[in-house]
Amino acid sequence: MDNFKNLDPLLHSQLRLAIMSILMNVDSAEFVYIKEKTEATAGNLSVQLDKLSQAGYIKITKSFKGKKPLTSCSITKVGISAFEKYVDDLKQYINP
């Protein structure tokens, strides 16, 4: 793991990187959509979304679709910068 010490530890995890990759590509996505694409469990996904939200990487919006609660996520400017830096850092490992 020491080889990757420069990489953002928050993004250097399978599920969190997948969530950020999805949100980089869309304006906003519902919780169910992210769950379907990442094939994560609802509980685990919820915990990881909270971690990314607490770091300011994503914004979570809770509303209602009809009578059903709806959770939508979108990436923030901080999140975009962090993701871009992660990809740049990754390039350093690929092309040292």
């Binding site: 990757f4 399978q14 590509n25």
Partner: peptide
């Protein structure tokens, strides 16, 4: 997919490209 740490740069790239492909 789970919260395990990524073990290689290839794995990182695979996750990123797979998610981009899925959100087409």
């Amino acid at each position: 997919m789970n919260t395990e740490q990524i073990t290689s740069t290839e794995e990182s790239l695979a996750i990123i490209t797979d998610m981009i492909r899925q959100t087409k």
